[in-house]
């Protein structure tokens, strides 16, 4: 009866959370327990929330252009704390040339604009079946 839990987080200062909310809603409708952090979270807050909520995955959304710094900090803190059982994904306005770098950082998937919700849901279903 393990239920998939996903933290949907908005790091940094941008206030555009429509995308994050649409993804949260789609995951909810696929049977996931989604914990939404709200806006303006620091990387430290995101990791700590993920720990306390014992989530299987973190999905971050950033539209401000600061993703390389913010997402990297989150990955660094996770590594520092020895957390390797949380899958991290991201979305937002992310240039193609950054996608490879993000994956090298350990981010499992990058869901850019136009990604069908079905893909995001299926990706998380696969985590559930791990």
């Amino acid at each position: 009866m393990t239920k998939l839990r996903v933290l949907v987080a908005k790091p940094g200062l941008d206030g555009h959370d429509r995308g994050a909310k649409v993804v949260a809603r789609a995951l909810r409708d696929s049977g996931v327990e989604v914990i939404y952090t709200g806006l303006h979270q620091t990387p430290e807050q995101i990791v700590e929330a993920a720990i306390q909520e014992d989530v299987d995955a973190i999905g971050m959304s950033c539209l401000s252009g600061a993703h390389m710094t913010l997402f990297k900090t989150v990955m660094d803190i996770l590594k520092e704390k020895g957390i390797d059982d949380i899958v991290v994904t991201c979305g937002g306005i992310i240039p193609d040339e950054d996608v490879t770098k993000l994956k090298e950082m350990g981010i499992a998937a990058v869901f850019g604009p136009g990604t069908p919700l079905r893909d995001i849901v299926d990706f998380h279903r696969k985590i559930a079946g791990k």
Partner: peptide, 22 residues
Amino acid sequence: PTSPYTGGALLGDRIRMGNLTL
């Protein structure tokens, strides 16, 4: 609340408690 149809839930109470996380 958990959805009686899908079993999913949107848990949003943390939004109002942000600064306590750390």
